[in-house]
Computed example of a mutant assay.
Amino acid sequence: MRSAAVVGTGLIGTSIALALRGRGVTTYLLDRDPETARTAAGLGAGLAAVPRTPVDLAILAVPPQHVARALHEHQHLNLAHDFTDAASVKAKPQAEAAALGCDLSRYVGGHPMAGREQSGPLAARGDLFQGRPWVLTPAEGAGRRALDRTMELAELCGARPVVMGHEQHDRAVALISHTPHVVASLLAARLLHGDEAELQLAGQGLRDVTRIAGGDAELWTDIIGSNASAVADVLAEIVLDLRVVVEALADLGTGAPERPRISREHLTTALVRGVQGRGRIPAGVVSGPAAAVSGLRLSGAAVGG
């Protein structure tokens, strides 16, 4: 790959551009907010300009709800020979792109599984994707050239390409990213009811559990809403588990003589299952996937340039 264009110069887009520039790829930066693109350019991420001729690959670093529209517009403008995106939801944008009549033979969905709580180009890092999975979701009919270029993009950024189906990807991120963000946010929201003396006792455990709740609420509404059914399915299962735990704690709290043994067993089982589940996280996976798209900017989202 010799040339690329990044549409949307937030954390993820600028980090991709920095990685590409570091590998000698001529990279153009487009954003609905020209000042944001210029900021990214000032960091050495590329040229804040529209290329005169089509680049090899355009990366749409925009939130899920803007992917199809951005793809349609920039294919019409002949920005690139092939296209990919970096959104954390795949099935819905793919269906919307098909409905708009986009050329899906030149498009492969993508999702780099890395991020930070900070957003915007100033938080970008050229090594953000080093060693991380980069999911590719080619639709039926996607061209070999588009897939090869998207795979090369991931490798140029230091990531590990992983090919998955759209629905499989969305179920996966509902489990490992989107639902954790909702749960962390709900827990963090309970802190609004704590008084200052109580909050002074907060330790690292609370900070770890609520870290991802600090992401952009408007952006995460778009992300989670775009994967609503899959997230709802996981949350429904959590609700069932919570009911069991709440009932067990209520029994233990009242000291009802006929139920303490069973209630204690239910509580222990819930905690043991948590230990077992955490043990299934592959070695070397660090916290971060839940924030993987926290840098996709709403203000510069849809259509750059």
Rank of each mutant, 00 (worst) to 15 (best):
Q94M: 15
R52W: 11
G22P: 04
D127H: 09
R116H: 13
D222G: 00
T268M: 15
A45F: 01
A86E: 11
S15F: 07
L29D: 06
I224D: 01
L30K: 11
T269S: 15
G203Y: 08
K92Y: 10
I281T: 12
G143F: 10
Q118F: 13
V182L: 11
L18R: 00
G300D: 07
E73C: 12
G131I: 01
A197T: 06
H72P: 00
A37P: 06
L175I: 09
H169W: 10
G46V: 09
A48P: 05
A232M: 04
N78D: 15
T179Q: 06
H76T: 15
I176V: 15
P54I: 02
G203V: 07
L77A: 14
A159L: 05
Q118T: 13
R297Y: 00
R264S: 15
A49R: 13
R207T: 05
S15N: 11
T14E: 00
L252Y: 03
L201W: 03
V173L: 09
L77V: 07
A174F: 02
L153M: 05
A123F: 09
A228W: 12
G22F: 04
A250V: 12
L77G: 09
T27V: 01
V162W: 06
A91E: 14
A236W: 05
S263N: 04
A270W: 01
T221M: 12
A95D: 13
G42A: 03
G288W: 08
V67T: 06
G10C: 02
P180F: 09
I12E: 06
W220V: 02
H76V: 08
G225W: 00
P121D: 10
L43M: 11
R149Q: 14
Q118L: 14
S105K: 03
G42Q: 12
A61M: 07
V293P: 06
H166D: 05
D148K: 13
G203W: 11
G110F: 03
V62P: 02
A213K: 01
P54R: 01
L201T: 13
V209H: 08
H266P: 10
T269E: 15
G115R: 00
A91F: 05
D85I: 11
H181S: 02
L192T: 08
A172W: 14
L192P: 02
G143M: 06
H169G: 00
R190E: 15
H72G: 10
H178G: 09
L192C: 13
V173M: 05
F129N: 08
Q75P: 08
E198H: 13
R38N: 10
E152F: 04
S294F: 08
P121E: 11
D222P: 01
S88P: 03
P161G: 10
P180S: 02
Q168W: 11
G110Y: 09
G46Y: 03
V246L: 15
L156E: 00
P63Q: 03
V7D: 06
P63E: 00
L100I: 09
V245Y: 07
H76N: 00
M113L: 15
T53S: 14
L267T: 02
E140M: 00
L57P: 04
D148I: 05
G141R: 00
G143V: 01
A228C: 07
G274R: 06
S226W: 04
V6W: 09
T210V: 10
V234S: 09
V234K: 00
D251G: 13
L252P: 07
D251C: 14
